[in-house]
């Protein structure tokens, strides 16, 4: 058995394996596949039903189950959803497994998996991944606004 508590190093090794077989594009294709087949059925359905507030519903469950150290906000008026990840246990685990080499773009999966789905519903994301070496990141999602003339 691979326990769900052992998934993160498995995921990292999977990305490394795919890249060694067919390059970085193969890794991105995998992320897109999971986005289309798995995330769409979960996050996508929530956003389809609740609008951008579906993000709040989705991450309310997953971030708690993943025992993240975070601050999450949703402003109903501006329809702005943010996650300030003070410590991501997934990235944190990889950083602590010093005997393993983490996949070089491990955190890249987050933007592809989720935002490929969210873009379909008019939600755009911006990210700050500059502190992933400390298992920290920041993401903001909001409805796309029409370009001002």
């Amino acid at each position: 058995m691979i326990s769900c508590t052992e998934f993160i190093p498995f995921y990292s090794e999977l990305f490394t394996f795919l890249e060694e077989q067919d390059g970085y594009d193969a890794v991105v294709r995998y992320w897109e596949h999971i986005s289309d087949t798995y995330v769409q059925d979960r996050l996508g359905k929530l956003v389809e039903k609740e609008g951008i507030r579906g993000c709040w519903t989705y991450w309310s469950r997953s971030l708690n189950e993943e025992a993240c150290d975070f601050r999450m906000t949703y402003d109903e008026e501006t329809e702005r959803f943010t996650i300030d990840m003070r410590h991501c246990p997934s990235r944190g685990m990889l950083n602590e497994l010093t005997y393993m080499k983490p996949y070089h773009d491990y955190c890249g999966h987050c933007a592809v998996l989720y935002d490929r789905v969210l873009e379909k519903y008019g939600v755009e994301g911006t990210f700050d991944f500059s502190k992933v070496d400390k298992a920290q990141c920041f993401s903001c999602r909001q409805m796309k606004r029409p370009a001002q003339e």
Binding site: C4, T5, F7, W56, S60, S62, L63, N64, E65, E66, A67, C68, D69, F70, R71, M72, T73, Y74, D75, E76, H87, P89
Partner: peptide
Amino acid sequence: LLVMDRKASDNKYLHLDF
């Protein structure tokens, strides 16, 4: 404005979706 603030110690690490 909805706010959720959690420490890692608030929850058990068990995300069965994994």
